[in-house]
């Protein structure tokens, strides 16, 4: 054992960089994010630009991943679609995380009737299978990609709330929080500065796993016609389009599916790697 003193982040990085698979997954995610941001620069064609002289063409030098029924370039649509999928994923998880963490923190810290009421509310949300809840929300708000963000956020809230409540309950009893309380630190500061940081490792791991789930759910909703609408290059909506051309133009089904699969897989592998890296730190 060396005696070097490491910052919490340094310690985390030392453990995380041993997780080869998670590093590769993280790298892939960074690439996809960069591609999504740079879509106007790197996409060879405009995503909604029809070209009726080249419809339903297979992969070629002019169109690496072929064209769809309107002659639109599949590669360009997938690159632009990354913007949609990542935006939906990040926004819905951020929203669910903020609300869920706040509720869980308050619930675990205050206890008593506040805790009872909040946790029963979470039970109600968890009493619906996730996608049923999301479809219910979309039914109220109407189809469309912005409403999908709220719909997915709603079913992430109870997951984060329960997770943070559990950690907050445990940390509330810990010696350092008791000590802080004794020297007169007030409740809001106790929650935000002393208890919240202790809950963060678990929140980060779950956020990564939820990102995968959220992107998958958004694509599912678009696929069944309740999410992004047809001109949008959202990956699930592209698959719904491609469905009509099975056996005629299989590349329309193949490539958007690969895109969803790889991105979701990357977030899941990253989440697993983060869990291993952060768990070990929690144990020592």
């Amino acid at each position: 054992m060396s005696d070097t003193i490491r910052t919490p982040f340094g310690e985390f990085w030392r453990r995380f960089k041993r997780q080869r698979v998670a590093l590769v997954a993280g790298g892939l995610i960074v690439l996809v994010i960069l591609a999504a941001i740079a879509a106007p620069l790197i996409a060879p064609y405009a995503p909604a630009e029809p070209d009726y002289n080249s419809i339903l063409e297979g992969p070629s030098a002019a169109h690496f991943l072929g064209t769809d029924a309107y002659g639109r370039d599949v590669l360009s649509r997938i690159i632009w679609g990354a913007q949609v999928s990542l935006t939906v994923g990040f926004l819905s998880v951020a929203l669910g995380l903020l609300v869920g963490v706040a509720l869980g923190l308050v619930s675990g810290f205050l206890g008593g009737w506040v805790d009872s009421i909040l946790m029963r509310l979470m039970d109600v949300l968890l009493a619906f299978p996730g996608i049923v809840l999301a479809i219910g929300v979309v039914a109220v708000l109407g189809p469309g990609i912005d409403n999908v963000i709220y719909a997915i956020a709603v079913f992430s809230v109870p997951v984060f709330a329960r997770l943070v409540r559990g950690s907050a309950l445990a940390l509330k009893q810990s010696l350092y929080v008791q000590a802080a309380r004794t020297i007169g630190v007030r409740a809001p500061a106790l929650m935000l500065r002393h208890i919240l940081p202790g809950c963060l490792p678990a929140v980060i791991v779950y956020a990564s796993l939820r990102l995968g789930t959220s992107i998958l759910t958004a694509a599912s909703l678009s696929f069944i016609g309740l999410g992004a609408r047809p001109p949008s290059p959202e990956w699930g909506a592209m698959l719904a389009d491609g469905r009509s051309y099975l056996g005629v133009a299989d590349h329309l089904t193949l490539f958007p599916g690969i895109a969803i699969f790889l991105v979701v897989l990357a977030f899941n592998l990253l989440g697993d790697g983060l869990r291993d890296a952060l768990d070990q730190k929690l144990r020592t």
């Binding site: 998958l216 694509a219 599912s220 299989d250 897989l265 592998l269």
Partner: peptide
């Protein structure tokens, strides 16, 4: 196993139908 979790079910369905 981890691939199975990440596989979009509707995509798998379409590939099987194809």
């Amino acid at each position: 196993a981890i691939s199975g979790v990440s596989f979009p079910s509707f995509w798998l369905g379409l590939l099987l139908i194809d």
